[in-house]
Design a protein around this nucleic acid. Structure first.
Lengths: 147, 147
DNA sequence: CGGAGTTGGTTGGATTTTCCAACTGAGGTA
DNA sequence: TACCTCAGTTGGAAAATCCAACCAACTCCG
């Protein structure tokens, strides 16, 4: 009996971004903070941990380390195309927080869509185009439900 | 100068679900595993850690502990309405994994929409209804960009 | 009746990770 | 010369995690 543990896409994604601080780093890169000290200040992450997270993000192809100065050599961090693909995850994290955990003075992070309005994300089904309510979804599992 | 750390909705959400194992537990509850031992088997989480995560999810109102047997007293865990609100986050974690980190034999986790097709999520803008590309988004920050 | 199995944990101790403050090095600025 | 910036690195304490074993209360089987 092979271990029963589900090796699904959720788990694989969390292997990349599930560690503490990682998603806050991704948020900062998304927001335009590309320098080590900026990220430290905006996230509060310990410097050594940040080094570790950036190295791992780079090793996994989500982030690029880019030299922006020669003397002394200095580097910035930028999301790759793959890393930008994390945007929707960030979006839904933000959406949940905005809806349920609003701070006193509203969300400090506003996002505007090119249509001119505040961006409030809605999940729709690619096939039918309808907005998706979780009640409309059915899960199909390979592994046996029981045991 | 107050700490510069961004206390945004992303950070607040991660405070609830950012710890290791937590999202896998939420995945299991979503998939219909409600019992302690099932969750252990399907996630691989250490039992003591799982106890901790379930207690915290309960304390934060995302999960309910429900007695399903009197003698001996036995309990199951169910998502609350608030906890079901994490569905879209799970969805986007899965989507990223499906797209970029596919396992050998395809995603073991299929989701079907009530329209009859496999559910492939698309983010749209509530205001204009269009599918959102990340290039169409503009971030507005309260905290100063510099420093 | 005795023994094994199920369920939902708890416990102790080793290991790993995190945290924090201080330090470094290469250069710029006053 | 003295101080500042930036991107880290280092050492050591503190916290979290992991693991295997244990436990309690019950059921089932023979």
């Amino acid at each position: 009996m092979t271990s029963q543990v589900r090796e699904c896409s959720v788990a694989r994604t969390l292997d990349l971004i599930g560690a503490k601080w990682t998603m806050l780093v991704v948020r900062e890169l998304h927001l335009g903070s590309h320098r080590f000290d900026q990220i430290v200040r905006h996230t509060g992450a310990p410097r050594d941990i940040l080094t570790d997270r950036l190295r791992k993000l780079e090793a996994n192809g989500l982030v690029e380390r880019v030299q922006y100065e020669d003397h002394p050599p200095r580097f910035e961090y930028h999301l790759t195309d793959l890393g930008r693909g994390l945007g929707p995850i960030l979006t839904m994290l933000r959406e949940f927080g905005d809806r349920h955990l609003a701070g006193e003075d509203g969300p400090p992070l506003r996002v505007e869509h090119s249509c001119g309005h505040d961006y409030q994300p809605v999940l729709t089904c690619r096939a039918c185009g309808e907005a998706v309510r979780s009640a409309d979804l059915t899960m199909h599992l390979d592994t046996a439900e029981a045991s």
